[in-house]
Design a binder for these strands. Structure first.
Lengths: 194, 194
DNA sequence: CTGTATATTGAATACATATTCAATGAAAAC
DNA sequence: GTTTTCATTGAATATGTATTCAATATACAG
């Protein structure tokens, strides 16, 4: 394994460790030393890989942003066009909920993206996360569902915000309480259903 | 006005200012100087009224805890016993949403209580907020609704967690985006409905 | 091998911000 | 009107934690 690959491995290890800690303890409560200790590596070495705690967060958010974009333009987006809107959303939630245990990486990333959008989070990371706009994507889906006659009346954007706020809230609880039972996706889609 | 009353007034002014800032900017991002500047008063004087930033938060959370307890044992609790479960919850949300503009104090307090329960928030305040358990209260209500045949099947505690996580998420958005339209309480109660 | 580059450490430093404090002003008590 | 108590200020200090750095070890290249 080349030197460059080694370094890349190490960067990923740091990123994954930080991701877990950020989501479970919160960004401000996880200190650089916490991450270093968990990797494990010395505190100073962290700065050989990332120039600051904020940049580390930004890298994570960038990864999340790419993933989300891929999702909303790749084959999954095709499925969205074909499937009935409610089926697609239920499928998405089912997938995400199952990741909570099988691919915590993906799950945590999704949760982090939501958290970083909140006020008081570092400016630049927040900007990047805000850029990825699931709200609009889902709003379109909701409009489609309304036409199909399966979703309730109401401003699609507002419905979309409510839907995602709910999903985010529940996923944060799941991220912290690993033993929490997985909710039925239908419960959340019911927010939209007629 | 006596000296003591003056002091009490001033304390309240600080508490209300801090509440607004905590909810809109986040606890960690609002500095003591931010609060002092907004009150307004000198930074040092803040410590004449509250011994620390954490204690200030704790005082707020204590107030919120009292308010919540009063709510769940006062006349409102009676109403809960009489009304159909869905009516009661819708009424509660309607009330809370209307407070967003008319009594931002109450609204913000409610949001803060939710935020403080999260990981990474100061220990003691968190403990106090956790103590106030809306989850169980609502779980009972949900059980009632299930018997009435209006709520879906499923673990009442899990349903309750989902319901509150959703409410919290949406109220946080409303707290930050003052122009956001008020969602229809029915959308959230639909999480529970059969 | 030898020299050069990279990885690693832990202690020193920088920095942001919470907290203290000595000094001053203003109000209440006597 | 004098004394005493409380309110107020802003600069100094303490503290926690991010960040830097000089020193050392390890891997790689020639």
């Amino acid at each position: 394994m080349t030197r460059k690959e080694q370094k890349e491995e190490r960067r990923k290890a740091i990123l994954m460790t930080a991701l877990t800690l950020f989501v479970t303890k919160g960004y401000y409560d996880t200190k650089i030393t916490d991450i270093a200790e968990a990797v494990p590596m010395s505190t100073g070495l962290m700065f050989h890989y990332f120039e600051s705690k904020e940049v580390l967060l930004e890298e994570l958010v960038k990864m999340g942003a790419e993933g989300t974009k891929a999702l909303s333009s790749g084959p999954a987006a095709q499925a969205a066009a074909d499937l009935p809107a409610d089926q697609y959303l239920k499928g998405f939630l089912q997938q995400m909920f199952s990741y909570a245990k099988e691919q915590p990486w993906v799950f945590n990333m999704f949760v982090l993206m939501g958290q970083v959008r909140r006020n008081g989070m570092p400016e630049e990371a927040r900007r990047i996360a805000m850029d990825v706009n699931s709200i609009d994507f889902t709003a379109k889906l909701i409009r489609k569902g309304q036409k199909e006659g399966i979703f309730r009346k109401g401003d699609p954007v507002l419905l979309s915000r409510c839907f995602w706020a709910s999903v985010q809230g529940i996923m944060e609880e799941m991220a912290i309480d690993k033993d929490m039972e997985v909710p039925d996706p239908e419960w959340l889609v019911a927010i939209l259903r007629k």
